[in-house]
């Protein structure tokens, strides 16, 4: 039982860390990767909460498709010549 508690606590701590990282980092690529990591950890959390259907949806949408779409959008933003300064390349 105690290792279940430790697993849940570590999972919650990692969720908070990756969510904080996704919100607060100035680097856009790092924020996107933290968001994908957050989706994967959220899928693990749903699996731990005995909700395999939601875990399936979260793994497919959160960690998979939205990550691909966001990376694609990031490239589109960065390759636009007039807005290259704001795309988060620096910092």
């Amino acid at each position: 039982m105690t290792s279940a508690l430790a697993f849940d606590l570590l999972l919650a701590a990692l969720l908070l860390l990756s969510a904080w990282q996704a919100m607060r980092t100035p680097h856009l690529g790092r924020a996107l990767l933290a968001f994908v990591v957050f989706g994967l950890l959220m899928a693990l959390a749903w699996a731990r909460l005995d909700a395999p259907d939601i875990a399936l949806a979260e793994a497919a949408v959160g960690a998979g498709l939205s990550g691909v779409l966001l990376f694609d959008a990031w490239r589109a933003i960065r390759n636009k010549p007039d807005s290259g300064k704001n795309a988060g390349d620096e910092a």
Binding site: A43, A47, P52, A55, L56, A59, A60, A63, G64, L65
Partner: peptide, 13 residues
């Protein structure tokens, strides 16, 4: 099934 989906979509990402 979730594990299978994750193995596939992590590769795509």
């Amino acid at each position: 099934d979730v594990a299978l989906t994750l193995a596939l979509l992590a590769a795509i990402t």
